[in-house]
Nucleic acid binder design. Structure first.
Length: 209
DNA sequence: CGCTTTTGACCTGCGC
DNA sequence: GCGCAGGTCAAAAGCG
């Protein structure tokens, strides 16, 4: 069983941006860390909206042991990433649509394009345990992909985080999960089943797996 | 019974 | 304006 730990928005960078990272384990065995993030400063184009084009900020090679935890611990590495990312503009979030919907039936809320974070993992299952509860609200077939894309919303009251899950056509072993929005609540995992606990274990026993 | 999933219809933005 | 693709809605079905 793949355990998939999600720590979206655990490190806010600006009003609209926060650093996110996933760590993948299999039977408590470290697999790899993978960080994806859209590039706010990239020029808007239709192609840049595709999940495949989100920029990788940091990733490790699959490995049976955690990387560099002796000399450069993970927090240090992530702090460096924080500094790098802080230089980015985040103007995309502010481009809320001010449409004149006076004459339209207001069936939907105004669309606000928020920052998206896409994560890839190699997994046989599409539904990965990221610590939050999700309700599926849609599924669409995707052009040039024989696998459908599923749309989920966080079930926590008042939390408007969404995610999409899609399997790559060109490599069906890879699942792409794209998150949009900021969780307004903590993960529902118990204290010894969250990231900080696991990270502390990794640093104390970096080669113990 | 309450929550989740399914699924076709509908909406929206974009390129031509 | 038209068609296409992506995204969302919502009623019905499924499920524990």
């Amino acid at each position: 069983m793949i355990r998939f730990f999600s720590f979206i928005n655990s490190r806010p960078l600006t009003t609209h941006t926060s650093l996110s990272y996933h760590i993948f384990f299999h039977h408590h065995r470290f697999i790899y860390i993978h960080i994806y993030m859209s590039t706010p400063s990239s020029p808007p184009s239709s192609s840049s909206k595709k999940m495949e084009n989100y920029q990788t900020i940091f990733t490790t090679q699959p490995s049976p042991t955690p990387p560099l935890l002796h000399d450069h611990n993970l927090h240090g590495h992530l702090n460096k990433i924080n500094m790098d990312v802080l230089g980015c503009s985040t103007s995309l979030d502010d481009s809320a649509i001010h449409g004149d919907d006076k004459n339209k039936k207001k069936k939907r809320e105004k669309k606000v394009r928020r920052e998206r974070y896409a994560f890839q993992t190699r997994s046989q299952v599409d539904i990965l345990d990221d610590g939050y509860r999700w309700r599926k609200y849609g599924q669409k077939s995707v052009k040039n992909n024989r696998f459908p894309r599923s749309y989920y919303r966080c079930t926590h009251q008042g939390c408007n985080v969404k995610k999409q899950v899609q399997r790559l056509s060109r490599d069906e072993g890879v699942v792409v999960t794209t998150y949009e929005g900021v969780h307004t609540h903590p993960t529902q995992k118990s204290n010894n089943d969250n990231f900080e606990h696991i990270l502390s274990q990794m640093q104390i026993y970096p080669a113990g797996f």
